[in-house]
Amino acid sequence: MNNESKLDTVKGSAITKQKSMKVSASVSFMNKKKWKEAGLFTLFVGPVLLAFTLIVLIPFVTGIYYAFTDWNGITGTVKWVGLDNFTYLFSEDKQFQQSFMLTTKYTVVSIILTNVIGFGLALLVAQRLKTRNLLRTVFFMPNLIGGLILGFIWQFIFVKGFASIGELTGIPLFELAWLGDAETAFWGIVIVSLWQGAGYIMIIYIAALQNVPQELIEAARIDGANRFQILRHITMPLVAPAVTICLFLTTASSFKVFDANLSLTNGGPFKSTEMLALNIYTEAFVNNRYGIGEAKALIFFIVVAAITVIQVTISKKKEVES
């Protein structure tokens, strides 16, 4: 069969005819093998690449284009408006600017608190406690539940639960109308994200703490170091790679917060807690201003990408050093 096809190519091609039989035979054999390999490659990689291209790549690229248009999703005509959308966002759209600042503030607060509390919880359950396994489960459990349902749970806690605790204890903190005021509603979202995220971060820190060699700690103890010194000079440097991972995870997830924002406050009161993701969503699907929504989404992407690239670069550098 192979011989026949070799002959076929020799007969069929005017160019190969001029060359010697031997060379043309090996070329066609190579081609056949190449085609077979390319076919297999397509068979294995093709399906997911197709889904990825249609679902992620094409919408992403067309989205960048739409950011420079007046697309509203209803009329068929899409007009190129240059940088108008961006000028509008930075000069007139106060809500967007406020959302941007709020999201930045939220991200900073939530990165610090989630990591501090997550690390604290990890240190707690790393002790030889009788209840350590149970506690680990308790701390991690909220993380399973999606942000949407968590937000609803806490809506009840803030509205009814806190009021009741305030009545019983008289502590003024619980007597506030938490979701009715911009400042406390902001902290409400932070609390929900801590309740959800701390357990997750704890799991990663526990894994890192388990890798710290006990001999080192024992040796330091014999040399007279106290608990705090051991934590500061032995444990902390050894779990540094985990810190990078956790910072990365919390930054990305905080900046993109949406579900808990929607279900807990829905941006209220008076749009004062509308984070960036919710602001983009509202612009696009409530106001139907797709072009401006896309411009916001593009800025959003650039910020997220910048954060990620910076973090990956730093962590790579650290890996090399250590």
């Binding site: 094409i58 919408p59 067309t62 993109k256 993701a277 959003f300 997220v304």
Partner: peptide, 14 residues
């Protein structure tokens, strides 16, 4: 890296 918000609008159209 691409956040979902940067894809969703054209995605729904596609």
């Amino acid at each position: 890296i691409i956040p979902f918000q940067s894809i969703m609008i054209p995605l729904i159209k596609t």
